[in-house]
Simulated assay, not measured.
Amino acid sequence: MTEVTEDFFASLPDRAPAVLRSPVSGTIRIDLSTGARTDHWRVELAPGQVRVSRSPEPADAIWYSSVDLFERLVTGRTQGIAAVLRNESTFSGNLTLFLIFRHFFPDPPGTRDPREVAREQAGRSR
């Protein structure tokens, strides 16, 4: 397991209040594979909080990914939905949990909020 991935999961509880604002709750298990080895991360989501464990226990949703792809996700070099649509990873179970969990991933490097760009352009035209 890469240090980037370990750091990502370790950061989730502190980041949860800002990310998990909806009333949705449930468990998502992320199965990360490399070669013949699979590491399991079980994330319990609740409004404003997260609990992370290294457990293969059943969950409401399961996301299967390679370690390499997941590292690209946690560094913002690719997007979760795009990876699933390209069949680079698979997802089963409660789709809402996947859609919520993806908000923990950073935006691609250099991405800016379009409202911020519009404000800057409006300020220059004055």
Rank of each mutant, 00 (worst) to 15 (best):
P56W: 10
F98H: 09
A10S: 10
W63K: 02
T111H: 11
S33G: 09
R29I: 04
S89N: 11
L85S: 14
V117L: 14
A18W: 01
G93F: 04
R86N: 15
V117I: 15
I100K: 04
V84L: 14
P58T: 11
D68V: 06
L45S: 06
R54L: 08
S92C: 00
A61P: 12
I30L: 13
R86P: 04
R29F: 05
L97W: 05
S25P: 00
F91G: 11
A122T: 11
W63H: 11
S65N: 08
T78P: 10
G123F: 12
S66P: 08
P58F: 01
Y64M: 13
P56C: 01
S66G: 12
T27Y: 00
W63Q: 06
P106G: 06
S22L: 09
R54K: 15
P23V: 02
V52M: 08
S66T: 15
L73V: 13
P13W: 02
I100G: 00
H40K: 02
E71P: 02
T75M: 09
S53W: 12
A82Q: 10
P13K: 03
G48C: 10
L85F: 06
V117P: 10
A83W: 07
N87A: 15
A82S: 14
L12E: 03
T38W: 05
P17Q: 02
